[in-house]
Write a protein that binds this DNA or RNA. Structure first.
Lengths: 201, 201
DNA sequence: ATTGTCATACCAACCGGTAGGTATGCAAAT
DNA sequence: ATTTGCATACCTACCGGTTGGTATGACAAT
């Protein structure tokens, strides 16, 4: 009676609607009715696919992260041979994204961490794991870039990976408050200055 | 009938309770009942002092910011004569704050910006103004520090001011997700490295 | 081809509880 | 006597979630 298909067009519509709403209003302020109305479905069918609202939240988070991950995996800069070029390409890619008005909506990982870390420990944990994966992916390239171009210097690749992430998240907050995503570009460029120092340019 | 005193012990209790709750759970997830229970008062008296929940939000935000502002104004590093020492002192002060377990609760400015920028334009604007004031205060010291110690270099003091802020806000997000405020210290130290470059050390 | 079976997909109506907010009363202070 | 501080009681809308049901399609057995 209640074994919905794990992936159906309807479920995807619900997830897409929820993602948009939650990026705009956050998790708590987004109601199940909102999601249903936006997806042009009814609450009955919503709860056919999701046991609780929290389950929806987790699903949206996973969907968001894997979408991002995919977008990066498909980006051209990842094909560069030199890891240092990949790292700088990464930051430039983020800058380009921040210029795209369609993507000027903040990071779900950041917003969920902030509003749910105290009330929804499960979601908080999921956020932390996604952050850790993100940092680890960055760390790998940073470590080889360092080995190749800055072997002598003494600094921790993991720390730079973390720093890139927090610069992104912090810029997004300020961009949102100011309703101006130029903040992101400005600060990613300063991050590149900092990286120049680390890699000895 | 409804002209409450602008500042009374009761109102302060409500504000303090609301600030703690909203730092932990955010604005939306904090209910008026929560606030009343935490302040050991009833809803009747709550609405004696605040016309709406949104008015409470703005009041809490103002209170939070002016508390922070005061804490900084009273800090010893501001007495230094050299503006460069004041800037570095500022960052060190933030590091010390991040070590204090009592203050490991995020920044209301950041959380409100994220969850309310789309739904409560008034609060969003207030946040943006507070951010701007914060940045301006930093910019002044940075500009004189630059004039004194790095007059030749070409970079914008306003950009560094903004960068300091976004590093703080970004670190706080990650710290929250990881439930570990060492993140803040690590990234403020990297920020200092970046500043060393700018000021030509 | 027809029928019966069974699982999934989706909906309209509803439920208990709680959200923000109001009406009102009354004691203390001015 | 009026104003202020705070409480009790209550209202309406809406919250997340449930219920009972219908529609649809796949697959057999006939």
């Amino acid at each position: 009676m209640r074994k919905p298909q794990p992936d159906s067009p309807t479920k995807r519509k619900l997830l897409a609607a929820a993602q948009n709403l939650m990026l705009a209003k956050g998790f708590t302020a987004t109601t199940v009715d909102d999601v249903c109305e936006s997806a042009r479905l009814t609450k009955g069918s919503f709860f056919h696919y999701f046991e609780t609202k929290e389950a929806l939240g987790k699903a949206v988070l996973d969907r968001y992260v894997s979408t991002m991950f995919q977008a990066i995996q498909d980006a051209p800069f990842l094909k560069k041979d030199d890891p240092l070029q990949r790292i700088y390409g990464y930051v430039d890619f983020l800058i380009e994204m921040s210029r795209n008005p369609a993507k000027q909506s903040g990071c779900l990982l950041g917003t969920f961490s902030q509003e749910l870390s105290d009330t929804h420990p499960g979601i908080r944990k999921t956020c932390a794991q996604h952050f850790a994966r993100w940092a680890e992916a960055l760390r790998l390239d940073i470590a080889s870039a360092k080995a190749k171009h800055a072997g002598r210097k003494r600094w921790d690749p993991a720390a730079l990976a973390e720093h890139i992430i927090i610069v992104v998240e912090g810029s997004l907050i300020l961009a949102r408050a100011n309703q101006n995503y130029g903040v992101v570009e400005r600060n990613l460029k300063q991050l590149k200055q900092y990286m120049n120092g680390l890699f000895g340019r």
